[in-house]
Design a protein around this nucleic acid. Structure first.
Length: 125
DNA sequence: AAACTGACTAATA
DNA sequence: CTATTAGCCAGTT
């Protein structure tokens, strides 16, 4: 793993009519206690501008999928989830349960808990 | 097939 | 900092 996303996969997947499995695969890679933005997931899924599609894919998620959808936040480090406010609360609860700390305004510091698939230099917590 | 919608993002004011 | 606008892409109507 670790191959940078390319547009070539986008066309092929689109022709098949389903890139959701691709997005789910990326979300599944997010380690516990880390968070990723929709754009980040989309980029890694091979959709450089498919942030919205990530939201679509997560909306279609079955309940017993076991996918850590709660680790996906928007670019501002905030929880979105418009059509399902109940899940919004659950998302925050799950993240806090994993050690993620929310700001007083309900924001997460992506620079601290933002998942980066790229090798990092030494980061001292 | 065209238009509308939307778990988004980046740029501007 | 928040609010607004435009852009993007796939799924629905």
């Amino acid at each position: 793993m670790g191959d940078p996303p390319e547009d070539v996969g986008r066309l092929e997947t689109r022709r098949r009519g389903g890139n959701r499995p691709r997005i789910w695969a990326v979300v599944r890679r997010i380690p516990r206690g880390k968070v990723a933005s929709y754009g980040q997931v989309a980029l890694w899924a091979g959709l450089p501008h498919g942030a919205r599609q990530v939201g679509y894919a997560l909306h279609d998620l079955p309940e017993g999928s076991g996918l850590p959808w709660h680790r996906v936040l928007n670019a501002q480090g905030r929880v979105s989830v418009h059509p399902d406010p109940v899940s919004s609360q659950l998302q925050r609860a799950l993240l806090e349960s994993e050690g993620v700390v929310f700001d007083a305004r309900g924001r997460v510091d992506l620079g601290r808990w933002g998942w980066r698939p790229r090798p990092q230099k030494g980061r001292a917590p």
